[in-house]
């Protein structure tokens, strides 16, 4: 692989944005994007989990490959991610109980956020080295946060406007996501 770290970052951040171009992590994207003040911390928490998961996955993959145990990869990754989420949960509960309550059920659900497992799986499939893996994880997390914050900002304004009642809720959010995704397609080709 000869991609530079910068290319990987831009690609994961914008051109192949995890949420809007690759459909990863949609549940929290729809679920937590109602308010800006929960969206940003959620993005930060997910980014942190992604980073930890990516680091662990990198080491784990080396270990599993050296023992010829590739078929255990998926199981090992998911266990690592679950532990990382547990860690974030404990830290948040101790240092910011208000935020912990605001994120509610979506915090443990980071475990089943496909974006996190996606980072681990993609970096393995693309055979990234250590630096590439880390930049990929940071880029993906930043892209996830960006999408979440954009969506939350739009939805905050939307609550004040007059929408046809039949379209309220998820249907409208999905339409919005479609338009955002259309805009993000303009970044296609950026970063190679």
């Amino acid at each position: 692989m000869h991609e530079s770290a910068w290319q990987i970052f831009i690609s994961a951040f914008l051109a192949n944005n995890f949420v809007l171009a690759m459909f990863l992590g949609l549940c929290p994207f729809i679920g937590v994007s109602g308010k800006l003040e929960t969206a940003a911390p959620m993005g930060a928490a997910t980014t942190f989990v992604m980073l930890v998961a990516s680091l662990c996955a990198y080491g784990l993959n080396l270990l599993l490959t050296s023992f010829n145990l590739e078929f255990l990869r998926l199981i090992a990754y998911i266990v690592i991610i679950a532990s990382a989420v547990q860690l974030v949960e404990m830290v948040l509960k101790k240092y910011s109980p208000a935020l912990f309550r605001a994120l509610g059920i979506y915090l443990p659900l980071i475990t089943t956020n496909c974006a996190v497992l996606g980072v681990a799986l993609f970096q393995t499939a693309r055979e990234y080295d250590f630096v590439q893996s880390v930049t990929f994880a940071v880029g993906a997390g930043a892209g996830f946060t960006l999408a979440l914050v954009l969506m939350a900002s739009v939805r905050e304004r939307l609550t004040l406007s007059d929408v046809p009642s039949v379209a309220q809720g998820t249907a409208l959010s999905l339409m919005l996501a479609g338009i955002l995704s259309l805009a993000f397609m303009g970044f296609a080709g950026l970063g190679g």
Partner: peptide
């Protein structure tokens, strides 16, 4: 073509949800 690209996925699911909401109503 946009329908097989990522935005199309969001649009089509949004449409289906609208249809379901209208029927339920």
């Amino acid at each position: 073509v946009v329908m097989v690209l990522p935005p199309g996925g969001f649009f089509v699911l949004g449409m289906w949800l609208l249809v379901f909401a209208a029927v339920a109503r």
